[in-house]
């Protein structure tokens, strides 16, 4: 029997991996590949609003909310930073039965991870604002009531930022390399760990979209299978991983500190229109997930 106990203990030891911290170490960095730029003085005083719009080309309610976001952006300008994340098999996978329509797959692995983390199993469209808890439709998910979109966005307008962000990014036509750099300036002591994320977007992709016409939509051309729908601010790549890189450790930052971080990515997909690229950089609280500041920049 003694041998049996030893065998059991041995199997137990080799058969278990206890993970104390599930967060992976840094993914992706521009150091050593892209030259770091010089940043001018940043004088921003506004907290921007990151709008993550979880959508899909076969989601017939989605164009309505996208149109609403677009309308609000036309009033708010750079303070509103929308991202279209195409997610789920149900709404965003190519639709074989409708070929040749709806054959483009805009989904990304990072987008799916974000969906699973922020709004697991939520129906679409779903909108998350600065990943802030408190607007939530369902406990455990951060998506807002879509009918409250405008008022929830407005609630951020008077906020002061805890950090300032500015970016300087480039695209090299010969190597297809995107280099993105951000400068993060601490304006308020931060008690938690914070991470910096770089997203690469492609704006205004024209492709098929299903629409039920319920959102009121003068420019998208009515309901049904819309061939020339304009997909705006589509997430193409989470350049330094969907969770980004931790740049601020709890309690160690001081007001006035400036942190410069970069990330790089080479585009290999020839269908991306490189004159429509955007970089979005944002900093979020690793504990609460809330985005404390975001910044967007068009490339080219």
């Amino acid at each position: 029997m003694k041998h049996i106990y030893i065998l059991l203990i041995a199997i137990a030891l080799v058969g278990c991996d206890k993970v104390d911290d599930p967060r992976p170490s840094v993914i992706g960095n521009a150091d050593g590949i892209c030259p770091a730029p010089t940043f001018a003085q940043n004088t921003d005083t506004l907290r921007n609003v990151l709008v993550e719009d979880f959508t899909g080309h076969y989601c017939n309610n989605c164009p309505g909310i996208a149109y609403a976001i677009d309308t609000i952006k036309s009033n708010m300008g750079k303070q509103l930073i929308p991202i279209g994340l195409h997610v789920t098999d149900q709404f965003a996978a190519p639709v074989t039965a409708k070929a040749p329509k709806f054959q483009t797959d805009f989904r990304t692995a990072g987008g799916l991870d974000i969906y699973n983390d922020l709004i697991p199993s939520a129906g679409l469209p779903a909108v998350v604002l600065n990943r802030k808890d408190g607007f939530t439709l369902t406990p455990g998910r951060l998506n807002i009531y879509n009918s409250n979109l405008s008022s929830d966005i407005r609630s951020f307008i008077g906020d002061s930022p805890k950090v300032r962000i500015q970016t300087k990014s480039t695209f090299d036509n010969t190597t297809n390399r995107v280099c993105a750099y951000a400068e993060v300036e601490i304006l308020t002591p931060l008690a938690d760990d914070h991470s910096l994320v770089f997203y690469l977007l492609e704006d205004s992709i024209v492709d098929w979209q299903l629409y039920n016409g319920n959102g009121g939509n003068p420019i998208y051309g009515g309901a049904g299978d819309i061939q020339d729908y304009v997909h705006k601010h589509v997430l193409r790549k989470c350049m330094n991983g969907w969770q980004g890189k931790k740049i601020i450790s709890a309690g160690t930052s001081a007001v006035g500190d400036k942190i410069v971080e970069g990330s790089t990515f080479v585009i290999t997909d020839g269908t991306w229109r490189t004159n429509h690229l955007e970089i979005v950089a944002f900093v979020y609280n690793n504990i609460t997930k809330e985005v404390i500041q975001a910044y967007s920049e068009k490339l080219n």
Partner: peptide, 21 residues
Amino acid sequence: SFVSKYQEDDNQAFILPENVG
């Protein structure tokens, strides 16, 4: 009883336990 499974960590988002007992 003791039962364990092995599956490769194929996830970039998290450090996943490959051996779960």
